[in-house]
Structure formats: C-alpha cells, structure tokens
Write a protein that binds this DNA or RNA. Sequence first.
DNA 1: AACGGAGGTGAGAGCGCTCTCCGATCATCG
DNA 2: CGATGATCGGAGAGCGCTCTCACCTCCGTT
Lengths: 346, 346
Amino acid sequence: MTDTAPRPTLEAVAARAGVSRATVSRVVNGGDGVREPLVERVRKAVEELGYVPNQAARSLVTRRHDAVAVVVAEPETRVFADPFFALQLRGISKELTAYDNQLVLLLTEGRDDHARVGRYLAGGHVDGALVFSLHLDDPLPGLIQHAGVPTVFGGRPDWSGGDRRGVVYVDSDNRGGARDAVRHLVGLGRTRIAHITGALDQTSAVDRLDGYRDVMVDADPRLIVEGDFTPAGGERAMRELLERCPDLDAVFAANDLTAAGALRVLRESGRRVPQDVAVVGFDDMLPVAEQTEPSLTTVRQDIEEMGRLMARLLLRGLDRRAAEQGVGAAPSSVVLPTTLVRRASA
Amino acid sequence: MTDTAPRPTLEAVAARAGVSRATVSRVVNGGDGVREPLVERVRKAVEELGYVPNQAARSLVTRRHDAVAVVVAEPETRVFADPFFALQLRGISKELTAYDNQLVLLLTEGRDDHARVGRYLAGGHVDGALVFSLHLDDPLPGLIQHAGVPTVFGGRPDWSGGDRRGVVYVDSDNRGGARDAVRHLVGLGRTRIAHITGALDQTSAVDRLDGYRDVMVDADPRLIVEGDFTPAGGERAMRELLERCPDLDAVFAANDLTAAGALRVLRESGRRVPQDVAVVGFDDMLPVAEQTEPSLTTVRQDIEEMGRLMARLLLRGLDRRAAEQGVGAAPSSVVLPTTLVRRASA
DNA sequence: AACGGAGGTGAGAGCGCTCTCCGATCATCG
DNA sequence: CGATGATCGGAGAGCGCTCTCACCTCCGTT
C-alpha cells in the first residue's frame, strides 16, 4: 500500500527546529540541559514530522538494545501447551513494556536449536535473557553462562553440572507448598498419604517430592509413584497406587493435571472423593482445578508474578551493570510463597 | 561474570584474513563472487575470532531487521491461557527460525497499549507483523494498516470498519467445519440440534454460527444460545437450552471448552451422552477433548500449521517487496481445511 | 568594568556494516 | 604475444545516531 515512507531523521528534525542534531538528541533522550523554549520547539518539530528514532543507529553507538530474549526450552509439547508458561510470559511482557524493553521470543526444540540460541545470545543482540530451562540435563544454562549474557532463570535450574555462582532464578516455593499440602491432608486425619510425582527430571517435581518427604518422614515407599505432570500419567500412577496400596486414604499429586487424571481413576474404582480418598493438586490452574469433580484443593502459585519478577530482576541487573559496576548488591534469586486453596477434594 | 568481551568486528576479521572488509562482508553474506581460497581464509578467521555480525550496524544500512513482530491483542485472560495461541506461536517460531528471523512478541492489554504497538510498528523496528486480532471492534487492524507495515492476520479480521484491500489473513475454515459437525449430527438422525455459540464479537464464532445455520436452515431460534468459549459459559448456555428445549437431542458447541461445560450440565441433568444427547465440539484441543467424559467428537484444525503459514506468507511478501515490487502475485489469504474427529460423544 | 565560571549549544568524530564504484588480475582470443 | 573482456578485490562513502569537546552566552563577583 503505502510506499516506504522516507522516515525523518534527527537531522531533519534539527533543521526544522533550527537547532543542531545534538540538541534534538538531548531532547529526545530526556531533555536535560536544554532550555525550555528550545525543548518546546524541538518537541513540536518531532511531532510535526512524526519522528521516531532509529533504534538500529542508536544501538550501534550505545551498545544497548532495550531488548530481552525469552528462551523457552520446549522438548515436549505439554510444557508449552499449558497455561503456566503463557501466564509467566504475560507477567514478563508487562514488566518489560513498562520499561520500554522489547521481548524477543526464542523457542527451542532439540539440540541444534540450542546452538542457535547460544549463538544468538552470544551475538549481543539483546541486553539480557530470561530462560525457562525445565530439564535437569539441559545444556542451555551452561551455554548461556558461557555466552556471558545477563540471565535470570524461571524455576530453579539444575546446577549439578555447573557453576552456581551468580545464577539468579525465580521460583515458587515448591517444597514448602508441598509440605503445606501434605500437612493439610495430615490435619484431615489421613495417614496413608500417597504422592504422584511430576517428571523427576524437573527441579519443580523433585522439590515437591522433597516437600512430601519432609512431612512423611518415613512414608511407605510404595506410596510414591512417578508421574509426568500429565493427566494420562496421573491415571497410570493412580492405578498403580490402588493396586499396591488399596488402603490409601489421600493423594498429593504433583500438579493439577495429574490430580485430574487421578480423580478419574478413583471415581472409576468406586472411591468417593474426598470421603474415601482426599486429593490435593498443585498449581491452581483454574481451568483445571475448578472443573474437576469434585473441584480440586490445590496449592496456588502466582505465576504471572513470577514472570514479572524475572523481568524486574533482569532489568535491575542490567541497570546496575550500566552504572559502571556500581555498588548495590547483585540481584539474587527469589522464591515466591505458595498458598493452599481449599476446595472440595480435600 | 565475564566482563563485556570486546566483540570482534569485520575489520578485525579482515585484518586476520589479510583481506579487505568488503571481502569479509561478501563471504559472510553468502560468499558470491569470492574465490574459493579467499573464502576459506575468511571463514577460518571468522571461526577463530568467533565473529558475529553486529545486527544493528547491518540494519542501519540495509534497512532490514530480519525481525517480525507478533502482536497478540489479549483483552481477556482466556485467550492467552488456552493452548490455541501457544500452538500457533510455535508454528510461527519454527518458520521464522528457518529463515533466520527473530520473533518480537507484543502483548497488548487495553487501549493505551494499542497506541504503543502502533508506534512501535510505525517506528520501523521490524520488517513485518503477524497480528492476532480477536475482537470485532478492535482498532488494531486499522492502526496497523495505517502504520504501513506488511502484515498477516491470524484469523479473519473484522473489516466492517476498514479497507479490506490488501488484507492478508490465515484462518481455519470455521464455517465449513461447523457445517461438517452439524451434518454429522444430522447423519446420526438427530433433529433437535442446538448450538452454543462462541463469543460473537469474534469472527470465528460468527463463522461457526453461520456454518450451523447453513445446515439448519430453519432451525428453531431457541436452539441457539450465545456462549463465550469458556466452560462456564458452556454450562450456563446448556442450562438455558435444557430449560427452553428439553427435547433437544444434540448440541454443537463452538469450541471444546464450551462442550466440556455443556457435558457437565448434561450429566447433571441425567442425560446420557451420546445416547440422549450427542455433542460435538470444535478445535480438538487434546488436553480437553480427550479427557471429557465421554471423549469429545470435535472438529480439528491444524493450529500449528496456521502459525507456520502466517509466517511463510509474511516472509514471502517481504521478499517480494524487497525484490523491487517484483512480479508475482501479492500473497493472498489462506483458509485451512478442518476435519471431523470422531470420538465417543457423537 | 573586567573576569571567572556555569550552563547551553553546536561541530565532528565515530559506532560496524554494506555497497558502489574502480582498479587490478587473470584467462582468452585474434 | 599483446589486446580485451570478465571477474575479483579494495577503497571509501555513508546509514542515523550519540557523545565528547570546544565554544559561547550570560550571570555573579571583586
């Protein structure tokens, strides 16, 4: 439609306002040290010409991009298809927008993609990165640390292989939340409390299992079955549990989807929930938790806030860096609290 | 950790390879017209120095950014939290990655955000835009057309207010899919077929309703109730339907979530599905459709493919534009076919 | 009344890259 | 064996911006 409109440059604005480029630049970037009448004239010229700074030219000299990469390692569809990530992304977006930063989304799938992402980050196209590294053996954290890009992780990364110094992450208190869930079941008088874990190659699943163990210090090992965060996994695990321990009276599922699967099997088996078996989930994913039958008691985490916090931490770190290694502590990791939401299932 | 490593420049590579900047540039950008031995030498120097081109400098002269904005208007949480968008995004990401383009994600929320997005697009920071404009009265399409940025829409935009010339979009065959769904119900011998619509401020909902009407030419108007694409809306609508038309024997729900809500109400009311009432959904969102009771017969659309296609269309358009308004038709809109997936509910 | 010092403003040098000339180089043909 | 293209490689001019200086007002001081 419109032919490539010849966008006005600083020069053009300067000419129109009858000042030098430098002055226009000053006005555009905050306007400090320019007298009011001039500021006004420049503003007017900018307005009239519809001037928008050329980010490329600016980046070339400032070495800043006002852009942050969000890297999502997504080996499995599940991860991406659940609302979890979407909510976090939204939190991130809000925070970045508030500070005029762009969000560059990098989805990876498979090993070669990792290399690509590493190259991209090392290439200095963005000021920092927010990384969702979900699996224990993920090479991504290492790659990124190597790339030397300021980074904040979503969820505690696995640092078994690496250097944990300087690693900043934002996570929910998975362990504490799990403890709360299990304690709640204990408080209900349940004694044979089972746990269906998440995919144990993810720290969140491990942490929730640890929380369960914190309370059930000498639990019957048969009460713990590995799931994978999916409803199908929950069903399978629940069947196994019922076979092994028909006397169980409660289940703590590693997430709501798992709980939904478990509920279905419990119903099939003729158990009443919560009378015969109480069930608690994790996440408080509304579309799931509110619609199971019965509705699910679960552990809520503020996912959007996690995202917002990640972005905030990163931007703060960038500022600090910009301020010539200024004083003030480097940002450190944050673990957000969880809350138990009581519904009908326990 | 690492102090800002002084990244090597073209100059440095040239020096090391013993050639001029121009030659290095040529090699880096395809290597045409440079003799093999030199190419080799340059490649080696690039490798050794770990040279990565400075995108900002390059953009400054080429006026290309190799970046595409993805704009998601998201007035409601629902839109974002469902897997639909995530899948589409994945398709887009794959395609963009394949052509070395970056994905800049712009989430909007509310009016002032629109202005921000308009400014950003008009600012020429990206080569093109992929826009998900979901609501009929959305000012975004207009803003974008005004910004003069090559754009492909996800889902047929509402152009009641605007100029539809040159508007390119990718959509599922919502109307055709709806027809198939209803015809299937007719084929099952159902005669009192109800429809729970989606949010009618979205073209997809309108198109599905139209498809329903295509088959049920003189349907009892009481058989049509407005929903909003949510399970809660589905429940509400189903209750209303049962009250109005207790004799209905089938329901076509505008999407799977709505169908899930409807199923719940049907079960509550003592109806058996599919014996008493057959139910068909739309979308084939696996986590939902496979897990309702009974599993849902629904209309599948290839969501990821839609995303991929959007990106492909846009990139093709950009190429064309780059080729000096070359010949070859401007890309035109694409409507992807849908398929009926039979499960237990109808 | 002259002078030092702020505080404003402008000139100019790049940031790292691409791309257009042009000159150099080689093979080929008369 | 020399002229003639065709091809390859290099020099250099910017792309639009920021930022350092140097300059130039204009004020307050002595």
